[in-house]
Design a protein around this nucleic acid. Structure first.
Lengths: 211, 211, 211, 211
DNA sequence: GAGTAAGCGAGACGGTACGTCCGGTCTTTTC
DNA sequence: GAAAAGACCGGACGTACCGTCTCGCTTACTC
């Protein structure tokens, strides 16, 4: 049970974060101002600066705290299918109108704010990547993937094109596009037995070990 | 032959761009100011605003004009080797201290400046991607790649992880990392005969057609 | 003929000073704000800060520039009468509702702003005192005052009680009060012969009854 | 006998007042802050606001409580000499480095804080003036001054130039200056006989040469 | 060549937000 | 039950750039 001071503090914090998101969606990140957030939230500027060192940090917190659910995905038996569902989820989040534009701006800001970049990695990118890697590892352990499958590289090959689409070409992020990448990644190895059949070719995986 | 006014104009323009790069490298993109560029270059602010609509546009121009050479690569017989060399070059440019940080900031800015994003794509991303796709197509035409190789997807799988590393994890961009991705991409198909040997499995390429 | 830039500058400056006085009279010195002056005058804050280093300096300029006339007084033949008229004028200015309260606040501010104190002395106090001393000297030269009359001290004895009334007791500044002080100051010497004639009156005291 | 709470309260109050003076002397009135006083005194801001309505009131209290002694002066037989000693004392207090600057600032603040002005008059100016008037009255009653001597005006002529020097020209307040004013005030009357004796001297002027 | 127009440096200007500071109120915790 | 500690709103501070604007000066082009 939180004590009174925490409760009060928490309420303030959440009100500010919610205002940040609302305002951010209305006028966009570039025009988003700590001054305006404070005014709209009925808060003193100091109250914001006490909690967050920069506009970026405030928005990062706001986005993550209010979209925590988006990272949780169920565990069916089929690890590969679960992975696909998980990536669908991540892509839906990024493509969504309430998260995508602000998050894109946030990654943008991180390009010249190392502190923000670190926070972004620590609190969003890495956890998500770890989940992906964990699923891949589970699949490998279950024999759905070749034992010499390079998990980290696979994760990069999975994520990279999605972020490329998201940040650079700024085209749509569809499930179909996710499928194309996943299919390419797992080409020729999904059914383990088939992999055994092609014993003549040692490098069955499209992703070869680092060694 | 350019007339005098053009010549003078060009000199001014180049001086401003050079100052932009110098100053940008000294103090970073975030603190880079049109006001400061004007002051350092001994130019009026008007003179800058007359030529470029925004700080981002100015920096984009400055970066591209002063690193034009980086996009040109030789043509040996071996298309795949040429592709590798080309990507090495791109990666070296991005990893370089005089181009990388500013360019990264520029991509950052493009996240909330659609005009800049468009210009960036049109003048840097797309030309580079086209070159890559052209090489891949040449390789496919020469039979070094499977005929059902999805060129665009391959390009995305090549570029994505590199930009992911560059923008998100902000780790080092090494030739070795490029190799790992290229090897994964071409796994099992580089020697055409081997690809034929696995005829039983239609999905020889790690990158399957869009179908 | 002032050139265009001066004319523009002057107009801005005067508009700001007028706004300062207006606002100052409406809400008082304590609540007067550079921010509010800028807003009301439709000027940028920088435009004010460029011209004046502090609120006090701005108000000093505003008060003096817009009440320049108050320091000018005519020259009749009777120097002592002229002096009296001059002091009446000064007192009327100080007692006036448009000058008094703000000027009082200004002297207040000068108590902990040495720069303002210096400016105040240089631009208002000293010129006024010099005028007074000049009149006294003229009177002495004309023989209306004793040759060993200490001009500076007389000025202090004239001004001191007025400022004491103005700043400390904050009572009304009337012509009658001026008369009492002047009479006390000149007691027994105004008409040189009369001093001798009044020999019978023991009240040679410089401080006469109010009567 | 004060109970414990009163004693504790008094200690707190004095500690705050002492801190106020210390801090005020260190950084000057302008930069003196209730916040800073509270911090340095180890007191809550509430504790200060509960006792004093404003910074000025706090400083006034602090100055007066810690310099109470300065208003007490001995009674010898010679009333005029006693008066002179009393004014010497007042002037020494004002000219002193520990009282003068802060007191000057306080009078400054009183220019736009009527409550403070009232308190200042009631607790410092008026008591002091009353003492002066009382001495003058005693002198008049003893026959050292003319019976039609205007006590209040004399007080004003005594105090005015001193405060003028203190507040306006901000020059030094010396005993010599006090003497000049006193001499001018009492010109020709201190030794009653001398007043009569000097009848022949035309220089009955109340203002004597500096020399 | 003289006159005219354009480009330019310089920098004033109205705005807007910054991040800091303090006033004065309120709440929580400690002694 | 008073007091410390300090969170909180509000609002002004003085600074920094923005993008627009005027001002003269200097060329360079036209007639």
């Amino acid at each position: 049970m939180p004590d009174a001071s925490n409760r009060r503090s928490t309420e303030r914090t959440e009100a500010i974060m919610r205002t940040t998101l609302d305002l951010g969606q209305e006028i966009g990140y570039a025009k988003l101002t700590i001054e305006a957030v404070a005014a709209r939230a009925g808060a003193g500027k100091h109250t914001i600066y006490r909690r967050w060192p920069s506009k970026g940090a405030l928005l990062l917190d706001s986005l993550l705290c209010l979209h925590e659910s988006a990272l949780a995905y169920p565990d069916t038996g089929d690890v590969i299918a679960d992975l696909r569902a998980q990536i669908y989820g991540a892509v839906d989040l990024l493509a969504g109108p309430s998260f995508g534009p602000l998050f894109r701006a946030l990654i943008g800001e991180a390009q010249y704010d190392p502190q923000l970049a670190a926070a972004l990695n620590e609190r969003f990118i890495t956890p998500l990547a770890d989940k992906t890697v964990a699923r891949l590892k589970a699949a490998r352990d279950q024999g759905q993937l070749s034992p010499d499958f390079d998990l980290t590289l696979a994760m990069a090959i999975l994520s990279g094109p999605l972020y490329f689409q998201f940040l650079i070409t700024q085209g749509p992020l569809t499930h179909e596009y996710v499928d194309r990448i996943l299919d390419a990644l797992f080409a020729g190895m999904e059914p383990r037995p088939r992999a055994r059949a092609s014993r003549a070719r040692p490098a069955t995986s499209s992703v070869r070990p680092v060694s």
